[in-house]
Design a protein around this nucleic acid. Sequence first.
DNA 1: CTGTTAGCGCATTCAC
DNA 2: GTGAATGCGCTAACAG
Lengths: 322, 322
Amino acid sequence: MVTIRDIAEQAGVSVSTASRALNDNPRISAVTRRKIKSLADRLGYVPNFNAKSLTRGESNVVGVIFPPEKASEQANPFFIDAMRGINQVLTERKYVLSVAIGETTQTILDNVIAMVDQAKVKRFILLYSHENDPIANYLRTAGLRFVVIGEPDAQYQDDYVNNDNVAAGEMGTDYLLSQLNVKRPVFVGSEEDWQYERDRRAGFGKATTAHQVVGQYLPIPAVEQPTKDVRVWIHEHPQIDGIVASDDLLGLAFFQQWQLIYPGKKLPIVSYNRSFKLPLPDLQFHSITLFPAKLGAAATELVFKKADENGGRHTVVPFKML
Amino acid sequence: MVTIRDIAEQAGVSVSTASRALNDNPRISAVTRRKIKSLADRLGYVPNFNAKSLTRGESNVVGVIFPPEKASEQANPFFIDAMRGINQVLTERKYVLSVAIGETTQTILDNVIAMVDQAKVKRFILLYSHENDPIANYLRTAGLRFVVIGEPDAQYQDDYVNNDNVAAGEMGTDYLLSQLNVKRPVFVGSEEDWQYERDRRAGFGKATTAHQVVGQYLPIPAVEQPTKDVRVWIHEHPQIDGIVASDDLLGLAFFQQWQLIYPGKKLPIVSYNRSFKLPLPDLQFHSITLFPAKLGAAATELVFKKADENGGRHTVVPFKML
DNA sequence: CTGTTAGCGCATTCAC
DNA sequence: GTGAATGCGCTAACAG
């Protein structure tokens, strides 16, 4: 293994000079810097992260925090794609991605604390946000740098990245109304009514108003086992001729029920996927992708920016109809 | 921050004694060990991983390697659940989970090499296996400890964990035939024909033979856009009265097509999910879970066992019909 | 069973 | 602009 010492000797300079040169310290002349750097990669030098972290008191690691869950509730590749985007940026910066994941908030919190105390991790990306989340609270009070992906807790000024979900809702609905000639749309959401759903629904409202049509709203209780209520609702609303679903799975769940009641009837659907492929019936589905990988990449860029006095910095990632 | 030095001083012993006691070195008397340990956590001592890794030449990290993919092709929470299982074991052992993920094999390989060279990671879990995978090759030749989740490359003796897919295939099929009174089953697989699919299909074959019924086999090209072929096949096989699908998504894809051709007709389905929930129509779906979290946990246990001379050690994780 | 000593590889004071 | 010296926190010879 070639150390900084080796390259110092071969270059005929001291270790400290080598160190400075490799770290782009301005006190080193451009000439020697170049010389040392080229020598370094000629020798195949790679810095030892552990030594570096030990002296710097901070490791080359960004912690990625998953939401607490016993098992995956949804078939949701959002996180994987986000990790891909995150890691792409991290690799450029010679950083490594570590994850904190577990069944309960407490488990994850312990995990995060271990990263901070033992591994000296100072930067985190939160893949979710809950109101009054103990983990976010910990990060805040510990003065650690972190970025939220999604809608952040409104009572704090955390940095975050997300999509403009109002615009996405409006755009999808508009497509349905103006291109697919829908007159009686329904917005299908989950019963959780997450912030992003509310936003998309707000966009839905704007579009329906603009087109002067009446929009319905239906929250679906459990995706995997829609209740009778949904069927009753469908029976009572035979005039529905298009769906905007806050999520692909919800759209599919609704459509399954609809199909049973009105077999063969067409029903165009716009939904917001998190970029995955499902075996969807024919071409009735129109998905809007929110580019999870881009969200991840943007969050990572942001987490490397120094914390701002005011906080609450925000990157908006575009969406696109597929 | 309290260091090992602090606890050594307060305990009135040398630093090395403290270090040994904390690391359960047998050369330390039980008395002083206990004394030092209790003092340590009374003072809230946490070891500095970076210092530890620097001296040991190995870091407290297990690298988890994802398959190369541009974007998630499937709505597959398998990986997330596996990570949960992995991290649970890692946390107990005071280890941290780092991931290597990217679009191409080369990117990921670079990622892995960086982990090895810069961060001194020595243990890995491969979340997939391809024949002649450059990453597995690298790990092998570099003499690193790794465990494969799934069916390993047959030409090597790598350690691995997986399910008994033949038994799972047989059990699911048997359920269909004996409990649901199916007489003309079809096995639906992907066109890739992965090893785990072949195994489940072999189990399907065993069960159909045992029940003296004729089993069909249909590979489906692309889940998200089944071709005409599938419809033609369905038209030509009206007698089919039950499905075993190698995967939930495939089952759903087939069923969507079937439904269009024979609306209202019942068609019981047994499929192997990787434990996620989809909006499935009614109760016709019978899922067999393969416990991805258990696979992850078992792989992690195995990766901490010293490499065996012969290699090829193997943990079998049970499955269960939900 | 325990203490002394010497690094691990690197960054960073402080000198020059 | 560069070098010498010191130490980050911990483990591991080598002694006793």
